[in-house]
Design a binder for these strands. Structure first.
Length: 673
DNA sequence: GCGGATCAC
DNA sequence: TATGGTGATCCGC
């Protein structure tokens, strides 16, 4: 994490003359995890550092770290620039926002998160009992997927390269991954889960969320007993142990399942005080969605360590981060999370990538590309997908990641089409020493909101806050997960309707991302351009065709240059006028000003524009004319009918109240419960 | 829409 | 000798 960042707020770090340089090399796998209690962390830290020092990987980590340091410096500067007036303004905005979020707290559901203990390792031990009691890791010398608890005592962990693990634990046994096995056992566990919640949400092969509200009610027993019973059943039917967490929402349930791991459980009651007490001292890193970078930034800039401090520093968070980010932070401070029933969702992209020993050999690279195109095409056709946006991913020998994308007019899925376009993308990057190539397809045929179709992007306040939840991105089927096929109603990104968060009266920037030089010097681009036409085309063609005989397509590729592509294949950006709130205050279509807190009013306003739009479309058909603002109410009613179903779905009965209600309560000095 | 970054498992 | 693969999201352009 912070390699060269001994900072004022991190007073314990003594980075003088590299006396203890390993202390500042914070890798992701030094985070405290279950089974790591008696570990000599300093020794692990030192070993990891010694094994990594000087490597290309390490140098890249240093480079990334320098960016984070820069970002931290920038945030600190912005903090220092805030005046007392600014702070009091943002404190008010934050207080209001926190009240709005609090108003949406839902304590009516009981969620259970179940997490298998060292899943891959446990399955391997089942099929080979001689491994029992010995330190073992699933994975390879390059990368470890899971380590059993014996290995964890040595500091061996998932995501750690095997050669470092072996240094930490010389007798470590390596077992190669076997996903068929894990899928089989995963299916067995899911048979159990289904008995408690037929609509349970699989988060991965070894994790699931169950809404046990109904089963508790029906059998009139406590959630604690359900959790015990479920874990016993899983053990009896698979021979595997698991841990469970029970809480009023999924975010908290996930945190709880980690508390008594392995083979344990923890129940957090559906009580606001209990939640607030629980959350107050909880380190933010325990929250899903807060990773090592966010943790580091929040600690270094604001001194935030616990969830409670998210609320204490609310005015700063409000001032320096986007609204959606600030909302998420506040939710964490309040212990809020999603409680809704599983939404089914369409996948949004499909991809594959491979790492190999770094090479500049263009023939080899094109051959790898052809293999990936073949695999991707096969995967897409298995699912009946056709896509328009193709993204090439490259990792250079210095571990720098680049992506290059193109959006086509036509939907494609054949390996010939994929390879043709992917080759163009790759050609523009060469020459380059590469250690990984990947291909991703997105923007699928049939995507609901894929294009510029008229689509009310403005979400209801309920949608908005619900989607702020940290586990928003975790309920997608993994590759081997056939249980979870999906569709979703509001497949809309929050960011798409957000602009700058700067208040109208502010004169400082809210820009938090330091998007400075990413290694793409103009010189490099120039170089790429000069080499755009592949010098050894004959060899490349031979390599590709020997891998996958292609009829003619590759000939075409050689004559296509980038400008042709731009004219011929690429789409121009299609702008469809969608309403958004400029500076979070002003309607981009008519200029009316409404503060963010006027959620209901804003909703009505966006409904108005939607109605206006619909009417325009209609009148185009009827050769008829305009819309006057006097008819707002009438049109608003029409729109309301259209979208009322959606709102009902997104509002839990009884939990919804107009925002004004809480302002009223607040001014009466009554906090809503 | 693109590209970089972050995150989870 | 040696630091993964898949999918999603957010932000600033």
């Amino acid at each position: 994490m912070a390699m060269a960042t001994a900072t004022a707020t991190e007073g314990t770090e003594t980075n003088d003359d590299g006396a203890r340089p390993w202390q500042s090399y914070h890798t992701v796998y030094t985070t405290a995890k279950a089974g790591m209690d008696g570990v000599d962390k300093e020794k692990v830290q030192r070993t990891v550092y010694e094994m990594s020092k000087g490597s290309k990987y390490f140098q890249n980590e240093e480079r990334k770290d320098a960016f984070i340091t820069q970002k931290i410096d920038k945030l600190r500067t912005q903090c220092d620039k805030l005046t007392q007036a600014d702070l009091s303004h943002f404190q008010k905005v934050a207080d209001r926002r926190i009240l709005e979020l609090e108003a949406l707290r839902d304590l009516s559901r009981i969620w259970l998160h179940v997490d298998m203990d060292a899943f891959y390792a446990a399955v391997e031990t089942l099929s080979n009992p001689t491994l029992k009691g010995k330190p073992m890791a699933v994975g390879s010398m390059s990368m470890i997927s899971t380590a059993n608890y014996e290995a964890r005592k040595f500091g061996v962990r998932a995501a750690m390269p095997g050669f470092i693990a072996r240094k930490l634990c010389p007798e470590l046994i390596f077992v190669p991954t076997d996903f068929n096995k894990y899928t089989h056992y995963s299916d067995l566990t899911r048979t159990v889960f289904r008995r408690y919640d037929p609509n349970f949400m699989a988060a991965s092969l070894d994790e699931a969320y169950l809404d046990i509200t109904e089963v508790c009610k029906r059998r009139n027993i406590k959630s604690e007993e359900i959790a015990e019973e479920l874990r016993t059943s899983v053990y009896e039917e698979t021979g595997l142990t698991c841990s469970a967490g029970v809480a009023p929402n999924r975010l908290l349930a996930k945190v709880c399942s980690d508390i008594n791991k392995p083979n344990g459980q923890y129940v957090l009651p559906n009580d606001r005080m209990a939640v607030m007490t629980f959350i107050s001292s909880l380190p933010i890193r325990k929250i899903g969605g807060i990773g090592k970078v966010t943790e580091h930034i929040l600690k270094a800039v604001f001194g935030i360590n616990t969830c409670e401090q998210m609320l204490e520093k609310a005015s700063y968070l409000c001032a320096l981060f986007s609204q959606s980010t600030a909302d998420f932070f506040f939710s964490v401070g309040l212990g809020l999370g999603k409680t809704d029933s599983p939404e089914v969702r369409f996948r949004k992209s499909i991809s594959n990538e491979r790492t190999f020993s770094a090479t500049e050999d263009e023939v080899l690279l094109y051959k790898k590309l052809a293999e990936l195109a073949e695999m991707l095409s096969t995967d897409m056709q298995k699912e009946g997908l056709c896509g328009r946006t193709l993204t090439l991913k490259l990792k250079t020998s210095s571990f720098e990641v680049r992506t290059r994308a193109m959006t086509l007019r036509k939907y494609i899925s054949s390996r010939e089409d994929i390879l043709k376009h992917a080759s163009e993308l790759l050609k523009a990057e060469l020459p380059l020493s590469v250690r990984l190539i990947g291909l991703r397809m997105s923007h699928f045929d049939g995507d609901k909101y894929g294009g510029s179709t008229s689509n009310p992007k403005q979400k209801t306040i309920t949608d908005f806050i619900a989607s702020v939840d940290a586990d928003r991105n975790r309920f997608l089927p993994d590759v081997a997960d056939h249980d979870f096929v999906s569709h979703t109603e509001t497949n809309v990104s929050i960011g798409s309707c957000q602009t700058s968060r700067d208040p109208a009266d502010g004169n400082h920037s809210s820009d938090v991302n330091c998007q400075s030089g990413t290694g793409w010097s103009s010189e490099e681009i120039q170089t790429s351009g000069n080499n755009a036409s592949c010098s050894n085309y004959g060899q490349v063609k031979e390599a590709v065709e020997s891998t996958f005989p292609i009829q003619g397509q590759f000939e075409d590729t050689s004559t296509l240059n980038l400008s042709n592509l731009l004219d011929d294949e690429r789409l121009n950006s299609c702008e469809d006028k969608t309403m958004l709130w400029l500076n979070d205050y002003k309607c981009s279509l008519c200029g009316i000003e409404l503060p963010p807190s006027f959620a209901e009013e804003r909703l009505e306003h966006s409904d108005f524009h939607l109605a206006e739009k619909l009417q325009k479309e209609e009148s185009r058909i009827h050769q008829r004319t305009s819309v006057s603002s006097r008819s707002w109410d009438q049109k608003n009613r029409i729109t309301r009918e259209r979208i009322s179903k959606k709102q009902k779905l997104s509002q839990k009965e009884g939990s919804y109240r107009p925002i004004d209600y809480f302002f009223l309560l607040k001014s009466n000095k009554n906090r809503p419960s």
